[in-house]
């Protein structure tokens, strides 16, 4: 089984909301100082999905990441979890893309890899929360797709995928090759082992530039965008919470009930 996992480096989405800052003049987010970027969490779930299949049926896992300033310790995490190879689309031309230009570049890179049975993506990246790149890759490559998977079983070149829905899940059968986006319901990604970390340290990523994947720099990154961003802003939180006090915590709790009664909330 040859598998490809697409992972994106993002600002840690679990950093405290108070540390989140934007620069309105450039419409960009200012990375919080001292907080290391991470692999977008659903992409770690995607890596875990591939590793689960490798555990039982063997296979090769190739990880691709597109961006600039990709910190090796960050993007190598899937390698230390047990993936085999890392390809970086790392070039100025690839930056500031939207779902379109990113999906296009990744699809062209995947075409170059050529031999694959399953492509895994996260259900959405924790920066722009778009949830589009996976489906875009599938559309460009003409592959069937399943979104928001929580369990994947492979038999006879078919995948049986449990897809998360609002009210439960659906079991979908899809022939391979296919693209599957993965949700957190798949379960916690495994921790890297010491052996894995050592092996990942020694492994050099393969770097591809636009020419390596046969695209013109004008088709990718900011130049390939279809979506224009007019404004980025932080919604104002009013923050006028009334903290209810009391002699004891229990009394505060009772006072809360009385207060809510007065405010006609009960």
């Amino acid at each position: 089984m040859n598998m490809i996992v697409c992972v994106k480096q993002v600002i840690d989405p679990e950093a405290p909301p108070a540390s989140f800052k934007i620069d309105p003049s450039s419409n960009k987010v200012v990375p919080p100082p001292g907080v290391s970027p991470v692999i977008s969490p659903f992409d770690e779930n995607a890596a875990e999905a591939a590793l689960k299949i490798k555990d039982t049926q063997g296979g090769k896992i190739t990880v691709i990441s597109l961006g600039t300033n990709l910190l090796r310790d960050v993007v190598k995490k899937p390698l230390s979890m047990g993936a085999d190879e890392l390809i970086l689309l790392e070039d100025e031309a690839f930056t500031n893309g939207d779902s379109w230009s990113t999906a296009y570049a990744l699809a062209m890179a995947i075409k170059k890899i050529g031999d694959y049975d399953i492509i895994f993506c996260g259900r959405q990246a924790a920066d722009w929360d778009a949830g589009q790149v996976g489906l875009g890759i599938a559309e460009i490559l003409g592959l069937p797709s399943v979104t928001a998977a929580k369990k994947i079983d492979i038999t006879d070149s078919k995948a049986r995928v449990e897809m998360v829905t609002t009210d439960g899940y659906e079991v979908i059968e899809v022939p391979l090759p296919a693209l599957i986006t993965v949700s957190s319901e798949l379960g916690e990604p495994r921790y890297p082992t010491i052996k894995g970390i050592m092996a990942a340290k020694r492994k050099e990523p393969i770097i591809w530039k636009p020419a390596d994947i046969g695209v013109d720099p004008s088709q990718v990154g900011a130049s390939g965008r279809r979506i224009k961003i007019l404004k980025l802003f932080q919604p104002i939180r009013e923050g006028k919470c009334e903290i209810i006090e009391g002699e004891s915590v229990e009394e505060a709790a009772a006072n809360l009930a009385s207060k809510m009664r007065k405010a006609k909330l009960l």
Binding site: R237, G239, K240, C241, E242, I243, I244, V249, E250, E251, A252, A253, A254, L256, A257, S258, K259, M260, R261, A263, L266
Partner: peptide, 27 residues
Amino acid sequence: FKEARFGVVGDYRKVIPAFTDKVKELL
């Protein structure tokens, strides 16, 4: 607390039973 209208700071193990009792009483 930035999103809330009212809040109580405390361990839920103490807050919830006392709150529930008072709500029952009021209702």
